[in-house]
Design a protein around this nucleic acid. Sequence first.
DNA 1: AACCACTACAACCGCAGATCT
DNA 2: GAGATCTGCGGTTGTAGTGGT
Length: 543
Amino acid sequence: MVLTSDISLDARALKKGPWTSTEDSILTSFVTKHGEGNWNSVQKHSGLFRCGKSCRLRWANHLRPNLKKGAFSAEEERTIVELHAKLGNKWARMATQLPGRTDNEIKNYWNTRIKRRTRAGLPVYPADRAKSCSFKYYVEASDGRSFISGKNADCDLTSSFSRQGGCLDSFHPISRRDNRSLNNRTFMTAVPPSSAVNQGINHLVFEGTINSYHCTEVIRNRQDDRNAVTNESGPFAESSSDESNMISRSDFIFSSLAFDRGYMAGALLSGSDNDLGQSLVLYNQRTTHENPITHYGPPVSVATLKQELPSSQSAVSADSTGTQRSSITNPSPIIPSNNILSETDSYGSNASNYLEALIQEAHPVEDIEQVCVSMDLIDQLMVLTSGNMPPDITALLVSSGKGRWGEKSDPTTPVEVGICSDHSTDVSPICQIGIWDETQAISTHSCPPVVPRFEDNMKELPREGTYPVCTDEDFLTLLDLANSDAVPEWHTSSESKSVGVPYALLVGNMDALPTQQTIAELDNSTSYRSVANQLWEHSSGAW
DNA sequence: AACCACTACAACCGCAGATCT
DNA sequence: GAGATCTGCGGTTGTAGTGGT
């Protein structure tokens, strides 16, 4: 009531509409004299009958020095497209990357561009931006599962993933740490059709931000997305440029990366942050960068897996005979058709023993260094473990691969943690563990495996002594060495380095995870690879 | 010349977070 | 600690200019 008259008074007093040159000059002289800020006082003391907001806007968009006028250059346009792909409608943030341009300009440009392209039936993002990733792998498994694995060398989009039941488009990993696009980061997602949803492997590979243009059915078996499974619509189903679709979630925790013949090798279902204790969480970038607590949880039992799946999806299903079995297509006649593991079994020791038996069956045991673990074995193991590779087995496989590093086909596929093959030979070059790199292309990786000490499992690893088991003192020593820059880094990419989990893997002791401060210091000074290098030298190449 | 569609741009509005009192 | 105020951001609207019919 009281305010009504005030408001109408203000409405009468304050001018709206286009600014005159006189007003501009008044505002300019006032700001030049008194500086920016305190815009309401501008209105009060400058004689302008404009509200503070209007003054700020006029100054910021038109009067402040160093503003660029005129049409956007081709380079600026390209930058805008890239930035929008990464940031969405964060005009102000985009403006900081375009000197002399205002958020309003960029917004106007984008909106008219959107209109134009939409009217023309063109995609928002140019096709060359949406498809230029060279996917290292694309596998359509016989059971209908599809995987896309992309590593991207020159663009920040991974898309053009379209398949029955879902597609992934415009996939933009962005570092939370500095909002930098993880352009060269390897990522993969698996989008199984409904018939295979119960594999427990349909998880995004990374934790980050997804700009979900046209994303559908990407994540389907997360706790809070279970309802979405039934209506064939994932959490990113809406197609919109709305900021609300900039989904940043921390619970897309990928497991291992490698797969062949359509099978995940290495595995693991993800879990939310709250599930750390249940899942074998291998990497969680958010926790790494902001709160470096990343766990190797206990192995996920089949029962746990089952529990974690939506009600419409079960890890094991009954076949026509009523036998409960993994719904992963059995890839090999070697493996009995029924699941060796009972539902309630943790696969741990059984699987380990079974794998050892398999290896011994395939190769003479006297020279384990010559053992080649074929993908058949990995296939079988995947069936055995329903896609969840226990860490001790992972380590065993690495052990089997000892000595193969750098030989013939270079096992350069980077993995976060897990097992991979290079997909180039019939016989897999075994496994790698623990090399996580968001800046290196797949094909340029070459470094010795870093074997985590899986706490209780460590003492059970074969060939004890060949693993780089680090004490905390070792860790500090290595850290000093790394920070001393005494050793050349394995790569000198100017991109920021990823530390944290790799470090922990390196150290082999999750308890020895460096503090965030340490990570930051390390990140500024050297690469964790130099530590790995030291580790390698310390072990005299023994691993 | 008049009208219309379209584009580019400027400015306003509402909201939310930060800061102040 | 709570309310007021300031500031910045993003969405929306208004308007001038341009080109085609």
